[in-house]
Design a protein around this nucleic acid. Sequence first.
DNA 1: AACGCTTATCGTCACACAAG
DNA 2: CTTGTGTGACGATAAGCGTT
Length: 262
Amino acid sequence: MDGMVEENGQVDPLAPSPDPQGPIASSVQSVIQPNQQSVIQTAANIQPMLGKGNVILVSKPNSVIQTTQGSLQTLRVVDAGSDDSFSEEESPKKRRDMLTRRPSYRKILNDLGGGEIAEGKVEQTSSEADSELSSHSIPYHTVLPATAIQISSGEGGQGIHTLTMTNSTAGGAIVQYAQGQEFFVPVVAQSGNISGGAGEDQARKREMRLLKNREAARECRRKKKEYIKCLENRVAVLENQNKALIDELKSLKELYCQQKTE
DNA sequence: AACGCTTATCGTCACACAAG
DNA sequence: CTTGTGTGACGATAAGCGTT
């Protein structure tokens, strides 16, 4: 569990881990209902799900973190603050926005302080980038290993960054890198052909847009998958809660009947 | 092995929306 | 208004699987 519980009750898997050691590798995804006692469940093979120093914000005490092995984990209850909480009197519009609109990728990046990609982001290996670029007929050159240059982008500065090449063509050249990976410089114009006409410029822009959109689509699908996992997990959690409440009601009824007959 | 079906994944397009 | 981004929709492709 490396996400902060959002004010709308969802655990944002993209949120930064409070653990300074970085995100936990597990991918527990849970949904916590606002203003109610909640249960966080983990998959059977994921434990411990909370690293030391992780904080979960819930607005109700007595919430439970439960694993499928039946073990409970201590939950540090922190006052989430009234400003961020999801009050019952929230306007329907705002409430709907909160429930239906997930934070944009840009906002997530801003929240992360400068471009940390979520832990689920699959870093593009050199071979993948190779096939990616070659499959779209963009010639490229391997320039140098990434370890030769260090670029700091604040805490957790990892992920794909876009740099602008000063000696590039008007459209600029994209330099993508991932930690430990190589740099690739897409060559969109052959040497001596840099001053190409408007048609080439259009084609270059289109190529850039397609490349960006391709990556955006990937990211979008990844987030969508996580969101669906969250919903599925929520179903499981609510079913368990429902079952527990039914059992509790049953035992209370029996107890009541026993006392009544005595 | 060949075929058909299902499912997952990917790239692209079109559109809505936010920011400048 | 322009530009950039996120996402739904659509088609193409590959992989897995059962049937013949």
